[in-house]
Design a protein around this nucleic acid. Structure first.
Lengths: 138, 138
DNA sequence: ATGAGTGCAAATAGTTTGCAAGCTG
DNA sequence: CAGCTTGCAAACTATTTGCACTCAT
């Protein structure tokens, strides 16, 4: 896990972003969490007074733009972020009731890319999230 | 198109929802539009003074819960709605710059369902949206 | 006639922005 | 020491809620 964070920190530097205590803490919070987290959730997962909520928003946005973390969306539209966990791109299946999350390795990026190129689109990205009710919440 | 709307109206009745001038107008607006629309966009596509913006929000939410229209999400988290167009479930590729939309028939619903059931999840739904830059906006 | 649906006003939630001060490279 | 980052306050946007009135069934 430590290695995971230092790898991310290195990526920060490569992208010309500065490494601060706050940013490191945010990356650590994401690294510890299995499930993708919204900005607010990431913020509350931080040790008290690590940084301001606004900083969490700003850092997450920057990390995402720099390709260091991935962006997802909840069923209700809130943005969530997660690491690729070194296993690269993946998706999630989230319980609508308790928020429990399972990882889903199914991905259609390649297919979408092909279709998109067919329409003349470039810089294609995608969002995919699955939702359901988990066994415990039945 | 006329048929499309009357079919939807029938569905409304089946679900025990009442048919009003406003609701019909909202369904017509969606039927006319190729691309998925947010509540605000749907509202502005309506003839002037058809209804209040709040009503658009409320109707769209109800329609979605009743399974009459489908819910999607933009890259920035805003919710968008669209009809199944009688062709059932489908997805979209949206230009980040101009909003132009192409329909994508690729779908992973079945696969996700299988994976979800494997984890013991029920009532599985999914969101999938692709984004890119369209030929005109290059 | 009864309760679903609507409009208006006001409240919220989540997120973004402006600016002065602080810290990284 | 230049300029990226941060904190605080305030602004904003998209969406939701309360309530009295209206209309579809």
């Amino acid at each position: 896990m430590k290695d995971l964070v230092s790898g991310l920190v290195k990526k920060l530097r490569e992208k010309g972003l500065r490494v601060t205590e706050q940013r490191r803490a945010i990356l650590e919070a994401l690294a510890k969490s299995e499930a993708p987290k919204s900005a607010e959730e990431t913020f509350s997962a931080l040790p008290a007074d690590t940084c301001d909520l606004v900083t969490a928003y700003r850092c997450l946005e920057q990390f995402e733009k720099a390709g260091i973390i991935e962006l997802g969306v909840r069923e209700n539209g809130t943005k969530v972020y997660c690491l690729g966990h070194g296993h690269g791109h993946h998706h999630h299946l989230t319980c609508r009731s308790c928020g429990h999350t399972e990882r889903v390795d199914l991905c259609v990026g390649k297919e979408l890319e092909k279709i998109g190129v067919g329409y003349g689109f470039t810089k294609i990205t995608h969002l995919m999230e699955a939702f359901g009710i988990c066994p415990e919440c039945r």
